[in-house]
Write a protein that binds this DNA or RNA. Structure first.
Lengths: 167, 167
DNA sequence: AAATATGATGGACGATGTCAATCAGTTTTG
DNA sequence: CAAAACTGATTGACATCGTCCATCATATTT
């Protein structure tokens, strides 16, 4: 035998022969596994850029760019992090000169976030890279990609809202 | 106005009003964001159990249970981790008395992994919990859940194979 | 027999998410 | 109006994570 089915009584030697069992019907398994792969790929693409490491920075960069004056807690919710984790990310970005933190006029507790010019430029560069990151799924057809995104987008928003109520 | 569309010129105050921009068409964004939510939920469910923290342990537990004699590198590939990360997980599990590491008869470099009785028992308990973890997506219909799982499963296997060739 | 490749480990490093504590500003309540 | 309760944001501590590099033992190739 060359590359066909393996002897079921023998120990599995190749990943392709693995039976995932319960995990095969578990959404979180696939999400968590793919997260690792996707993150690795993304960070490779961002190599050297000033937003390496972590979902937070990219999300923050884009959301602040698109919604000047947005507040930290809203970004945290969108990135599914808690406020304290996001605060650290924003602190880093401020040190890097990517964003400004201003006090909201209406409510002194709230911060209004803005991109600096440097931040704007970086956002443009990162946007291009993020668009290219679809290449990681070059095996996947546009139909499939669209389908899975549509589904995940729906799930995402429901989770965000559900987090909203609890958190 | 009460809860309708917000003034587009005003700063965004609620997550629901956020426009994700490029991220809205980026699979990795949704995967990474959902990963955080899903992981949080799963770890809450595993509270106190001997497999808390990390995708690796659960995957290892199930794969070893289903494929006695499986080797570490195969589990690493299925979990999308690198070998050294998986080695640490397996080391922990061995210390906990969940698995045995035996030397493969055919190839001395290779380890053959087996569950201990304690490991078997734990696997059963964890299986039940993992099944329940679908409740996290109670908002999502069975159709949607099945659809998204089918799509992600396909993507998962393609990524696994693609990793195989490079790694 | 020597060189090369493979499977598995271990240490070091920076970054992550969580949690509890803190602080400032706001709203509620009496 | 003052006290209490609440909210948004920040900080520090802690355990863990993924990565990278070096190492070691064993197999395979030449």
């Amino acid at each position: 035998m060359t590359a066909g089915k393996s002897d079921p009584s023998a120990a599995v030697t190749r990943v392709e022969d693995v039976d995932l069992g319960v995990l095969d019907d578990t959404l979180s398994f696939f999400v968590r596994a793919l997260n690792l792969a996707v993150t690795r790929d993304l960070e490779a693409r961002l190599e050297g850029m000033e937003v390496a490491h972590g979902t937070g920075k990219i999300t923050a960069l884009f959301l602040i760019g698109r919604h000047p004056g947005i507040r930290p807690s809203v970004i945290a919710a969108a990135a599914m992090k808690d406020r304290s984790a996001m605060a650290r990310v924003l602190g880093d970005m401020e040190k890097q000169g990517l964003i400004r933190r201003e006090a909201d006029i209406a409510d002194g507790r709230v911060q209004a976030l803005h991109l600096t010019e440097k931040g704007e430029r970086l956002a443009e560069d990162v946007r291009a890279i993020v668009r290219q990151s679809r290449d990681f799924f070059h095996d996947i057809s546009d139909e499939e990609y669209t389908q899975v995104i549509d589904l995940l987008r729906g799930i995402y928003w429901r989770v965000v809202k559900s987090n909203q109520q609890k958190g």
